[in-house]
Nucleic acid binder design. Structure first.
Lengths: 212, 212
DNA sequence: AATATTTTCGAACATTTGTTTGTACTGCGA
DNA sequence: TCGCAGTACAAACAAATGTTCGAAAATATT
């Protein structure tokens, strides 16, 4: 008897959808245009009906003051995660130990979490970039560079390395051999040449993360 | 730094409580009287602040059109400690629907996993950068930009937006008003000026990720 | 002390919105 | 045909509501 499948049902489903999507209830006019009614007065009838049967509660004269008593039954659209990508927790190093080429995880300043397919295999660490010697490669001050810990690299790769036991620095490896050459990516800086013994490579840059 | 414990915190907690209790969000004036502010204008500045930081989303000029982005957690406001780094799975969008300003998560091209403290609160999406119009900000082709979905932004912020229903683009928002101006970060490109109606903001860039 | 910056207030305004009223239109049974 | 109940419509109204503007007060900064 109280079966009004068409409009009443449409309205109730729209209420659920709207609340679900926007986080707040629609107005009478929004309902009207959504279900194909031309006048807000037409909606009133159905709202009263829905309230009488306990599906919703309303507060008179207040915009959007409408509460669903039977929260969505058609929720959980596509929140199913399925396969979750594996994540890697990468320590942020305050400084890199200038030892024998082995990266010591000292002064951990926190962590960076990335998906495994972003960085690949191996052990990783992250450094906050200081200075602007790599701006032409889009590596800015205060960015984080993520490096895979490795003691060797090839020409042309971006590496984290220490020179003369100095603090770690990020540069482009440009020549290998008896003499090693490191290139900045900034015309205002000079290339660095040093003896093979004086340069230790800590890792190869595999990713960059910037937070605004 | 962004610590405004008193009123801002009160307002956010009231929003949670109210939504929880009544099923719909409060009005600006209800907020005002609840937290002890005498003018609705006083509330506005805090709401704007909360929206800017991604805690809520609003629809201008609409009563109670206010969505909580994190209904449950109210501790986040006071510079939470964040022991275990919560991770966020961010969908990579192939394209952004040029609809009514609502970002439709179409053409999901995969996911990006970042720690919550990297991107902040709210709903996020990621786009692969095409072109070199933002190189001077260190945003290169094939980088991923991570944006928080929001329909408003402030001058000077980097935003994802669509113009004339074109594909989404990342630019610097430089002027608001009847005419909107969008700045590229590349001397070879011209600023874009368009009518307010023709530009829709999809989100604010909060992070950048590059994979080498 | 002097100066910015933030916060708050009051008032006014334009818009949105729920509601009411009166009027058609439809299907249905007596 | 005549009511009758349900539904839909347009117009109009009063109240609620978001927003803006200028100024005062409080707070932070120099």
């Amino acid at each position: 008897m109280n079966l009004k499948p068409s409009k009443r049902q449409q309205i109730f489903e729209f209420l659920c959808d709207f609340q679900n999507q926007y986080g707040y209830p629609p107005t009478v006019r929004e309902i009207a245009s959504a279900v194909g009614l031309a006048s807000p007065a037409s909606v009133q009838v159905h709202l009263r009906s829905l309230e009488r049967d306990g599906f919703i509660e309303r507060d008179p004269n207040k915009p959007r003051a409408l509460k669903l008593n039977q929260p969505t039954k058609l929720s959980q659209l596509s929140e199913s995660v399925g396969e979750q990508s594996e994540t890697v927790t990468i320590p942020i190093l305050g400084r890199v130990a200038a030892g024998t080429g082995v990266v010591a995880f000292e002064d951990r300043d926190g962590d960076l979490v990335l998906s495994r397919d972003m960085v690949g295999n191996g052990d990783h660490f992250a450094l906050k970039v200081r200075g602007d010697s790599m701006v032409e490669m889009g590596i800015f001050e205060n960015d984080w560079v993520v490096a895979r810990a490795q003691k060797v690299a090839e020409v042309g790769e971006v590496v984290i390395c220490g020179i003369f036991g100095d603090e770690a620095t990020v540069k482009i490896l440009s020549k290998l051999g008896e003499e090693v050459e490191l290139l900045p990516a900034n015309k205002n800086y000079q290339p660095i040449r040093a003896n093979h013994e004086e340069v230790s490579i800590f890792g190869k840059v595999v990713a960059l993360v910037r937070s605004f």
